[in-house]
Simulated assay, not measured.
Amino acid sequence: MAMGLWAPLNPPLRDWHGRGVWLVGASTGIGRALADALLAQGAQVVVSARPSAALVGLAGSHPALRTLALDVTDAAAVALAAPQAQALLPRLDMVVMCAGTYTPMGVSDFDLAVIRRHWEVNYLGTLHVLAAVLPRLRAQASGHVCVVGSVAGYRALPKALAYGPTKAALIHLAQGLHLELAPLGLGVSLVNPGFVATPLTAQNDFTMPALQTPTQAAQAILAGWARGDFEIHFPRRFSYTLKALGCLPMRGYEALVRRITGA
């Protein structure tokens, strides 16, 4: 029984040579670092993101890398891009959905348009990609989908009224996907990073505890895939603290968060 409880929830991924990976939303930050790390391990990688100078620069960074411009909020465009990405790879072994947006927002600057944009990119964008790739993955009865969430999805934090709920929804989505896809032979992982130094987190006007580099984040993700983890959260000293805080009653949780953040 103990063996069953602690067995990997996914097939461990250690050998990347020849594996085909589609990274969606990866022109900067964690996604870009993950592309570099996978290429170094011998994977074949296609990176999709909105047209930008970063995507153009990425296109010439490695001879094995392929890029495919894509706006995940456009469901029709995603449906067309999926077979194009597959055609650029020897086989579709993994799809990583890391497209995201983040704007700090509290009640004093509550903006419905900003909230809608978060749902369109962070959540609906992920659904658009899933709708485009799940038929292929189910048909081949192998492969892996990875959803990038955030520790901000564990429980409410200040200035995260637009961002936090989308990440909470992605956590729930990934759990449901694993429940249904694991018996079919497919892997599902959920990445919940803490603070990582990216163009998005550069907007924060506070000191970010346990801040990591994108390269550190990418290595943590690869290590989690190698272990066969379902949830890959890091840095663990920070993410485990947030998990523990999430178990507190509301009164105690709010008091601690206000004291820590000054909210």
Rank of each mutant, 00 (worst) to 15 (best):
H128C: 11
L190G: 08
V107N: 03
L222I: 10
V72S: 15
P193V: 03
H233Y: 03
P235G: 00
L127E: 02
A54V: 02
V78D: 05
C247E: 08
A162N: 11
A53R: 10
A218P: 01
P12K: 05
F206H: 04
C98Y: 00
V133D: 00
A49M: 07
R14L: 12
W225I: 02
A79E: 13
K243H: 08
A152C: 11
P158F: 13
A169V: 15
T261Q: 11
P8K: 10
V78R: 03
A141D: 12
N122E: 12
V47L: 05
L161K: 07
T201P: 10
A75G: 13
V151I: 13
L157Y: 09
G176I: 06
H233K: 05
L80D: 15
A53H: 05
L112S: 15
G149H: 04
A54Y: 06
M1H: 03
G42W: 13
V45Y: 00
L38P: 08
M1D: 06
G187H: 06
L38N: 04
V96N: 02
A113C: 11
L9R: 10
A33Y: 07
D229R: 10
R19C: 09
R136A: 09
V151F: 02
A81G: 14
P183K: 11
H17R: 14
A113I: 14
L92S: 09
V72W: 14
A76T: 12
A54G: 07
G252C: 02
T207S: 05
A82T: 12
Q175L: 12
A43C: 12
A132M: 02
S61W: 04
Y163T: 10
L157A: 14
A152K: 09
Q203G: 05
L184K: 13
V188R: 04
I115Q: 13
A182Y: 01
P249Q: 12
W16K: 03
L184S: 13
L34Q: 05
A35M: 08
L55C: 00
V191Y: 07
V56I: 12
S239I: 08
Q140G: 07
P90I: 11
I171H: 14
P193W: 01
L186I: 14
I221R: 01
M94Y: 10
G60N: 10
L65A: 07
L245A: 13
R19H: 11
A33L: 04
R258H: 13
R155T: 01
H128Q: 09
L245E: 04
F195H: 08
V72L: 15
A244G: 15
N122F: 10
T215M: 03
V72I: 13
